[in-house]
Design a binder for these strands. Structure first.
Length: 380
DNA sequence: AAAGCGGGGGG
DNA sequence: CCCCCAGCTTT
């Protein structure tokens, strides 16, 4: 059963790929299914499309500037998060020339809160590039691809949506749909080319932009990652994942790769009254602004300060038995803990934390554990 | 807590 | 070419 589904998936992708090439090989049954998929998808979209701020009304000619702007804002961002930003941008900079003429800082500020701020820099650079060629966006994918901040996805989206070219953008939604249509057994990340080929083969000669937007809407509202609504989906009768009975198990997940291990050491420098030295982490990056014990750089991390440069180094650091372990999103950390009495004043950027103020001091979980570890060892 | 998400830059 | 990163959302 699984084998036949797998064969079917490969056949789909293979045939789609062939049909998207020179078109000589005949596979009428699958070609008809492809046409049926397109027809059902467009019919569904004409009835159920989302009314998003950047979408031209049916029959209206899209403005390439608005299409591009919306696609950049939508990178790594949901439609609901992008909408208020889109409105702000088009009101403030109604044309690409106006955006190109704006100071960079204003563009960055207008982006604040969306994340991935290199998008803002590229947005501005791209506006300038387009303004320099007369304010008209190229309609060819290859030329679009050469613009700053425009990768394969965005180039295909603009070509299809703004210029009605037969292009096949593959965003996360569309990749999921293709993986489900074909019951693809390999994870999306390792099947990019096959998915792109299948998407290209599916794309219709006319209304490719509508088709792509329709798939995105289906992905967002029906073919959801965890809870697909197959009964409402216009593609379910063509969908091998649906036929498998467990559509939500597609796309297959890549095996979680083992987290890299990092190691480091922290120093518990304690005073006669039990207080110990701490410092605050930088305002950016991991555990930003939280309080920590002074310690070494963790392996695999950037530069840092092990111990205050202006402080005397205790001669009697004692390695405490055991270690403090913490698993973060991207890596696992194991910290050795060293302790020593310390009689001097607090060095620059360091401060004393008394034993009964540990809870309110602002330690991260891992540093709280490290402090508890040190105290439990009853140094001195 | 963990996964998802396009482009870009680095290995 | 593949891998990793970046910040915020959604689950």
């Amino acid at each position: 059963m699984a084998d036949s589904l797998e064969r079917d998936a490969r056949k789909w992708i293979k045939v789609f790929r062939e049909e998207s090439g020179d078109g000589t090989s005949g596979a009428p049954a699958l070609a008809e299914r492809r046409d049926a998929i397109v027809r059902r998808t467009l019919t569904w979209w004409d009835r159920a499309r989302r009314a998003l701020a950047w979408r031209a009304a049916p029959g209206e000619t899209p403005d390439p500037y608005r299409v591009w702007l919306s696609e950049v804002l939508l990178q790594q961002t949901t439609a609901s998060a992008a909408t208020p930003y889109y409105r702000t941008f088009v009101e403030r900079w109604p044309t690409v020339e106006r955006l190109a003429a704006a100071p960079m800082e204003e563009v960055i500020s207008a982006f604040a809160g969306l994340g991935y701020y290199s998008r803002a820099r590229n947005l501005h650079a791209c506006a300038k590039a387009v303004a320099a060629r007369g304010g008209r966006f190229p309609s060819e994918e290859a030329e679009l691809r050469a613009l700053p901040g425009v990768g394969a996805y965005t180039a295909a989206a603009i070509a299809a949506i703004a210029f009605d070219r037969r292009a096949a953008p593959v965003d996360g939604n569309i990749a999921r749909i293709v993986a489900r249509l074909t019951a693809l057994e390999t994870p999306i990340a390792s099947s990019r080319k096959a998915i792109a080929a299948a998407a290209r083969a599916l794309a219709p000669d006319r209304r490719a932009g509508d088709f792509a937007q329709a798939l995105m809407d289906i992905g967002a509202t029906l073919c959801r990652p965890l809870t697909p609504d197959c009964p409402a989906c216009p593609l379910s009768r063509d969908c091998l994942a649906f036929r498998s009975g467990a559509p939500e198990t597609f796309p297959r997940k890549a095996a979680a790769k083992p987290k890299p291990k990092r190691i480091g050491a922290v120093f518990f420098a304690h005073r006669a009254d039990g207080a110990f030295l701490a410092r605050r982490r930088p305002p950016k990056g991991l555990l930003a602004s939280t309080v920590e014990l002074p310690g070494t750089v963790w392996t695999g991390e950037g530069p840092g300060t092990a111990w205050a440069e202006d402080a005397p180094i205790p001669a009697r650091w004692r390695r405490l038995p055991g270690a403090v372990d913490q698993v973060f999103t991207h890596f696992a950390l194991s910290l050795a803990v060293y302790a020593a009495p310390y009689a001097g004043g607090a060095p620059d950027s360091h401060f004393w934390v008394s034993r009964d103020a540990v809870a309110e001091a602002g330690f991260s979980n891992v540093m709280r554990k490290a402090v508890a570890h040190a105290i439990a060892a009853r140094p001195e």
